[in-house]
Design a protein around this nucleic acid. Sequence first.
DNA 1: TCATTTCTTTGACCCTAGTCAAAGAAATGA
DNA 2: TCATTTCTTTGACTAGGGTCAAAGAAATGA
Lengths: 314, 314
Amino acid sequence: MRAMHPVPVNTSTVAAEDIASLRHFNRYFTRRIGALDDHYLGQDRPLGEARLLFEIGEDGASLRDLRVRLGLDAGYLSRMVKALDAEGLVRVSVHPGDSRLRIAELTPAGRVEVTEQNLRADALAEGLLKGLTPDQREQLTGALGSAQRLLRLAAIRVEVVDGGHPDAQACLDAYAADIDERFPEGYDPATLVQPCEVSGESGALLVAYEEKRPVACGALTGFDQGGRIGEIRHVWVHPDARRLGLARRLLGELERQAEERGYDVVRLDTHASLTEAQSLYRACGYREIPRYNDDVYGAYFFEKRLGTERPWGP
Amino acid sequence: MRAMHPVPVNTSTVAAEDIASLRHFNRYFTRRIGALDDHYLGQDRPLGEARLLFEIGEDGASLRDLRVRLGLDAGYLSRMVKALDAEGLVRVSVHPGDSRLRIAELTPAGRVEVTEQNLRADALAEGLLKGLTPDQREQLTGALGSAQRLLRLAAIRVEVVDGGHPDAQACLDAYAADIDERFPEGYDPATLVQPCEVSGESGALLVAYEEKRPVACGALTGFDQGGRIGEIRHVWVHPDARRLGLARRLLGELERQAEERGYDVVRLDTHASLTEAQSLYRACGYREIPRYNDDVYGAYFFEKRLGTERPWGP
DNA sequence: TCATTTCTTTGACCCTAGTCAAAGAAATGA
DNA sequence: TCATTTCTTTGACTAGGGTCAAAGAAATGA
């Protein structure tokens, strides 16, 4: 069996000036804005407790969740929650479904404190932005937005996983539920690929992870027995991870997987309602072809010849 | 005497979404990149010491400087330096000019450690950027760059200071030295405004501060005895603070000061070699007029009628 | 010259943040 | 059913990061 480990997305070396600029920004930002923020957030409460209160939030959260989200030691967390409980800011109860779990929720007093935290943080941000014209603020918002999108994208790792893997199943289920809502005629989950179709020599299932959390998937299957044509299916991105350019990247990874498996051509079909997907495929070098299957959901059919372009587009 | 306190630069309220976007970015960035960076920077050295080593840098620094730059308690700093000295990473000596001051410098071993720090930080940044295409990296660098410029600009405060204030004098001296180099014929510092010309009713001297450090200046004087015309002079920005849009902002502040003093018109002249300045004035609504004085350095003369535009440009 | 200010050092503290191990209680899988 | 895993609590302990006040030495201003 050939190597199926995900190959590095991009082998070109990183320009020293890009590194320097990221480091420079990092230094400036964390020292000047981040440090300020932490200082104001806490006020007369220890930073750890302030963060914990913030993280519990309006809806409450299980200790387990908080532990993972904040990356805290279980004992440390337990003690902090106890302290906040003693101060009347937090109320702890047993999870109704699983009595090993505890749920922490804010009391009214806790809510007040969190509201104050937010007001302070807002005031800090407002004070910063006050020094700019509305136009410049808009520029700043835009710049921070695209920086954040790119940093998120950079941190996402795409992996080949087994079709039966729970993360894969979760993605495919979410995909099915998503398009079931978007297709006027609904979507029958029985139409999803089977695990056996996307493993081994002829197929692959890719899952994209953002900090351990699966946020996107895409499947490659063998289209014919001859083995020259692959089919791409179920390219899906979690709503939280859209507009990062992740679909394009997944597509590129899927094409690379197809090349690795010796396919010359990949095909895919798409529903009439998914117009963004259609533009994406066109932008990535796919061209429309006649219907090649009897998929009830397929309205447009695309194909791309592999082995000529660079891995994933500009 | 009328109130001469600097008025707020901009009175429009800050949009809630701009505040939210800044806070959102801040959370994402400090938790994900900043925290990572700190963790990697230190390795098996306490973070405080690692930061201190970095801050001492190749050129060394006085304890006083370090104390201010890092915002540390004097006793705490003293002890950290002592610890680094004991480890052979830092060497402390008495300042040649002022024996109250101590200078901390890296020993060769300290230099090695800082180099390693830098390599680790570079590797971290490179790992992040590896997930992007060269194109996306360029976008990221651009976005971070403009965000940083805007954040710096937002943090700069413009103040009216007395013409004799040491910060004012420092700026004017730097201005004189700067243009002395740029003018082919040199510049005679005797031509600078006198403190009495920029104080009281008819004139003002503005100094822009970036975190307590003066980084730009600009002077407003009365041009004629009638009191309808003001003259703007000595608009200068420290090289480190250029390309932020600070000159434009200073100009706007000076115009506001002129309006406050009842001037209808402001004039200024500029040297033939300062072409950027000329474009700035044009962009800010100044129009060229005939020579109005016998200044030997003046080659182009501009004027602007006040009281119509918004404080400072788009 | 003398009082005041600036800069550093030292001693004596404190608290936050965090680690590690043990143990109990509930859920899960075989 | 029983062994294993998951989740939380508790005890014991540590290091890092930091504050405060006193005091000495040098510089500065009146």
